[in-house]
Amino acid sequence: MATVAYRAPRSHPSKEIRRHTLIYLGLLPFLLIAVFPIFWMLITALKQDPDLYRMDVVPFWFHLPPTWRHFDFLFHNTFYKDWIVNTMSISFWVSAITLLTAVPAGYALARLRLPGAENLGIGIFMTYLVPAIILFIPLARVVSTLDLQDSWWSLVVVYPTFTIPFCTWLLMGFFKTVPVEIEEAAMVDGCGQLGALCRIVLPVSWPGIITSVIFSFTLSMQDFLYSLAFVSISEQKPVPLGVATELIRGDVFFWGSLMAGALLVGVPVAIIYNLFLDKFITGITGAAIR
């Protein structure tokens, strides 16, 4: 279309190529610095030890055949399997607690026109900002009172302190977007308030609920301090803590297995988080956009 081409001279091919070249050149350093560590961890995890500890050859590729030894070591000589089971169990229970509390709370704050709802919502969200570093010492007392020290159950109790505020806020925003009409229609049809919530609102809200589960999982995976402070028995640790503390013996670092163990959980978490990153950003900044 001639008029469009005339009005948008930027789409001229040679100019487009120049623009793309400049953008790619600008992005190249960012891409390198963001991706290189992953590449380096991966190649470390797959190199044989003699290939790992030498400085006389280009280290970016294999000089001896790649090996699965570091992964074998992880699964046969450490508690890695237990750590994965612990991490999954923690995530499951944290998600369950978060959903059971944050879904009703988010719904009530968004929908029921309660006096003080806005302030209460902001108040709950603000607790997300009270950092672990202030809470971990008093929470250590709570954990020992509940007799949960050195068990991953302590983390099930503690992680909801940050997943509930975040997910309540997220779900509050989400429930505001569900049309009121379908709920009113259900109530006219004889559903009570609870009936309308369970039968009408929840079924159309599954994207928000799945997002909450994802964040309960990824935010739990980002924790290091609580697990470090509360769990010191090898078999009870979640993956990040186990990898960081059990594969370093004195001055000896098992670098191959360290990188293998870190990547094996890090990459899936990064991919899932990546897919939901926009929801995370909207969750915390959305308030400022609307």
Binding site: V35, P37, P240, A244, A262, A270
Partner: peptide
């Protein structure tokens, strides 16, 4: 590009710090 460039933020922090410790 966007998906690759946000990797540092999405990796669990203990995981990426271990990578840097090795580097």
């Amino acid at each position: 590009v966007r998906a690759l460039v946000v990797i540092p933020f999405t990796l669990p922090i203990a995981v990426s710090v271990l990578g840097w410790k090795w580097m």
